[in-house]
Design a protein around this nucleic acid. Structure first.
Length: 599
RNA sequence: CGGGGAGUGGCUCAGCCUGGUAGAGCACCUGGUUCGGGACCAGGGGGUCGGAGGUUCGAAUCCUCUCUCCCCGACCA
């Protein structure tokens, strides 16, 4: 039993001015954390206690499918050199030198290190599959830490790695993680969704993120309320309504039209009396291509064409061209690659490479332009556009692919088994990522030389999966989804305490002894109990209790003489009088009920 | 890295424009009265005004440089 009068729980009446999102404010006000630097936090008693409970759940569940390791956080350069990520990680990697001048870094993820273990120890298919995990502190030099514990430079992650002999094995490891992650997040009381995600720079095939909807989140999720389709906006697709085409004018060939000052899409549409969907938008980028081992990185011109009313999805575009970074072209580069000024760029007459990111220009056309006719496009000449532009006939491309972001209200892309499409309309919402599972493939096992013998005595490369859970983000997301003006509430499984016993007047010996006895009984019943025995006014104790996330409160006050106490449920702020000799059983029952409801 | 904002007691902020003995509320300590939704009265402690340099008889205030933090964007295995 913990007595509040002896604890360090520095609650704040007001939130520090630089706290913006709800979880940040409440973590500070409730005395869970204190900031030390940008994206660097001290975890105080309540915060650490809650995180420890989350970790215990993660560990208990993970132990059913994997084995816990503990790898170093400070890592030598060599493994990163071998995987190509010493340079690939860029400035996000914290780097340091030891006294001999050797390069080291602080671990931001551990694919390389796990793979070195696999490489030196695994010899036979008989040793597979393996699932190895750890709960470790990670370091990432984020360009912009923010939102309290949501985006930080030091954080705790459960990361696991699977090694399988073949794709079927990887599928199995992936499914195991999917199932166990759902159990973990449910036990933590989170309302989450699993979404299709981009596999990004990590390479690999299938990728799934676990997200919690909240306006504090940094990701956008498109989902279908009808069939349950859900995907990160970086990955989401949609079914588009057909667009009415314009009738050709003149001889139907591209026709140069003087459009003075009409550089913006809206102006062009207005000028031609067309919808933006009938205009072709051009966004010109320079894409960074990582050099092969020992070769320098290089920049290449990329022109992206899509419907005037669509937005480029840079993640998709990067994936299509195989680049590492994008930035928009400068005026001089526009002149060099497209021979035209911004606002009047178009695909007609462009000379492009046949493969992405070679010496000339890479032209990428969004799928939605294919099959369209008689569109309007810039003429790569100041104050001129073409009309009657038909993709395929009047211009070609290096690659045609989905490079756009879906918009809310567009049709769900899912096709039913019957062959008919889902009739739902997509909705887009903000969310925070709490977990990510994906199939890495052979990227690390191959580059780092991990090999085992298969049943035929043939040397094969194990296939890998990588799976992460952000521990602090579970806490943050839980607070984001359950808070009000007074504070927040966590489910008993991850709250620092399952119940707080508030003795309204500690100066009253009878109340004090009643509270002590009750707290002892609650503890004997297996509940984590906090006894508020502070010499404070009742109002102060109520306010504090409402603030710090504990799901149940028992008030030991006036009615205690008559054998009654109040049981207050934080989530609903509802209060019931309960007989003193029944309250332990009630709290116990409710806590167990909450845990069951999680599934 | 681009744009914006802020550094004054533990917290929230005023004072700065127009230079002249550093303030308020909350928190903290002592005494008293209170005691079921962040009490009241009286007394008290605590701040090199982020740092460095400059202007001036005199700088929290004006000038230069610098550090840090927050927000928007870029970025985000």
């Amino acid at each position: 039993m913990h007595r509040w009068s002896k604890l360090f729980v520095p609650t704040l009446r007001e939130a520090p001015a630089d706290a913006e999102v709800a979880s940040h404010k409440f973590l500070l006000r409730a005395g869970y954390i204190r900031q030390l630097g940008a994206g660097i936090y001290n975890y105080l008693f309540l915060g650490q206690r809650s995180l420890n409970k989350i970790i215990a759940i993660v560990r208990e569940e993970m132990d059913t499918i994997g084995q816990e390791f503990y790898l170093p956080a400070i890592l030598p350069r060599e493994p990163w050199e071998q995987s190509g990520r010493w340079t690939g990680m860029g400035d996000n990697m914290f780097r340091l030198k030891d006294r001999k001048g050797a390069d080291l870094c602080l671990g931001m993820t551990h694919e390389e290190i796990m793979t070195t273990i696999a490489r030196s120890e695994l010899r036979s298919y008989k040793q597979l599959p393996q699932i190895w995990y750890q709960i470790q502190t990670k370091f990432r030099d984020e360009p912009r830490p923010k939102s309290g514990l949501l985006r930080v430079r030091q954080f705790t992650m459960k990361d696991s790695y699977s090694f399988d002999i073949d794709k079927a094995g990887l599928d199995k490891s992936f499914e195991l993680h999917d199932g166990i992650y759902r159990r973990i997040f449910s036990r933590c009381g989170l309302k989450f969704v699993a979404v299709e995600a981009d596999s990004g720079a990590m390479g690999g095939s299938q990728s799934q993120e676990f997200m919690v909807y909240t306006d504090a989140g940094e990701d956008l999720i498109a989902s279908c309320p009808v069939c349950g389709y859900a995907a990160n906006l970086e990955k989401a697709t949609s079914r588009l309504e057909a667009v009415a085409e314009m009738e050709p004018t003149g001889d139907g060939k591209p026709e140069l039209v003087h459009t003075p000052g009409k550089g913006a899409i809206a102006d062009v549409a207005e000028f031609f009396k067309i919808s933006a969907a009938q205009d072709i938008k051009c966004v010109a980028y320079m894409a960074l291509k990582r050099g092969a081992a020992g070769k320098p990185d290089t920049w290449h011109g990329v022109a992206a064409f899509l419907r005037g009313d669509h937005q480029v999805n840079e993640t998709k575009l990067l994936g299509v061209v195989g680049g590492a970074e994008l930035r928009t072209m400068q005026a001089a580069e526009l002149e060099q690659y497209l021979k035209g000024p911004a606002g009047f760029l178009g695909p007609v007459g462009l000379v492009h490479d046949t493969k992405p990111l070679e010496d000339g220009l890479t032209v990428v056309v969004d799928k939605s332009l294919e099959g369209r006719k008689n569109l309007v496009a810039g003429a790569n000449k100041l104050d001129y556009h073409f009309r009657n532009v038909t993709p395929g006939r009047d211009f070609t491309w290096t690659v045609s692919a989905d490079i756009r972001s879906v918009n809310e209200g567009e049709g769900c892309p899912r096709i039913e088994a019957t062959g008919s499409g889902c009739v739902g309309k997509l909705v887009v919402g903000k969310a925070v990522e709490i977990g990510h599972i994906f199939k890495l493939g052979y990227k690390y096992s191959e580059s780092m030389g991990a090999r085992v013998l298969d049943p035929n005595g043939k040397e094969v490369t194990p296939i890998m999966g990588s799976y992460g859970i952000g521990i602090e983000r579970i806490l943050t997301a839980a607070i984001e989804q359950s808070n009000d003006q007074h504070g927040f509430w966590l489910t008993g499984a991850i709250a620092p305490f399952a119940v707080v016993v508030t003795v309204t007047n500690i100066g009253d010996a009878v109340l004090r002894e009643t509270g002590e006895k009750l707290a002892a009984e609650l503890e004997a019943a297996g509940l984590d109990v906090l006894l508020d025995d502070r010499d404070e006014r009742a109002g102060v104790k109520f306010k504090d209790a409402d603030l710090i996330g504990i799901p149940y409160r028992i008030n030991v006050g006036k009615k205690a003489a008559g054998g009654q106490v109040e049981l207050v449920t934080r989530a609903t702020a509802s209060s019931v009088d309960v007989a003193l000799n029944e309250v332990v059983a009630q709290v116990k029952a409710r806590t167990q009920e909450d845990a069951r409801h999680s599934f």
